[in-house]
């Protein structure tokens, strides 16, 4: 069975490396600050006890005050998983890109940019993927008008 690590298991380890990164830790996920997302993800991937080498998927959810990005990480070696979340501001949504760590994030980040409007800094080719260039608006937002 894949052991789903809770925020309480992993948050102390992250806090030891990056003292003010963790915003919230509950039994489902670990929420970190968006500026430190890349460093925390790199730490989670390269540390021997955690070794999250497989990025399962990235989702984005629009809560009316903020956007929340959900990263679902899996380790094939130890067969455990973790949910890593980050929040970003609705007016200027920007998050560091995870493409250099996990190449599977490439098309998923482009899709989130296309449909939600969150920019990923450091992405090599951030352009629309499902809709065409010149489309106005980001359809999956809650305030999108037809």
């Amino acid at each position: 069975m894949t052991v789903a690590l809770t925020g309480f298991n992993v948050a102390p380890q992250i806090t030891k490396q990056f003292p003010d990164a963790v915003v919230e830790a509950n039994d489902r996920a670990v929420v970190v600050k968006s500026g430190l997302l890349f460093k925390v993800a790199q730490y989670l991937k390269n540390t021997p006890g955690l070794a999250f080498d497989y990025l399962n998927h990235i989702s984005a959810v629009d809560y009316y005050d903020y956007f929340e990005l959900v990263y679902y990480l899996v380790s094939i070696e130890y067969n455990h998983s973790l949910v890593l979340k980050t929040r970003c501001d609705r007016n200027k949504p920007a998050v560091p890109s995870a493409v250099s760590l996990w190449r599977g994030a490439d098309y998923q980040e482009r899709e989130i940019y296309d449909l939600m409007g969150i920019t990923f800094e450091g992405h090599p080719n951030l352009k629309r993927i499902a809709l065409w260039a010149g489309y106005k608006g980001h359809p999956l937002r809650k305030d999108y008008l037809e």
Binding site: H57, S59, A60, V61, R103, G104, D106, Y107, Q108
Partner: peptide, 15 residues
């Protein structure tokens, strides 16, 4: 549902 995200296998295999 408030949000439904679909993790599609073919999209990731295509990378």
């Amino acid at each position: 549902p408030y949000r439904c995200h679909i993790r599609a296998p073919s999209l990731l295999n295509l990378t």
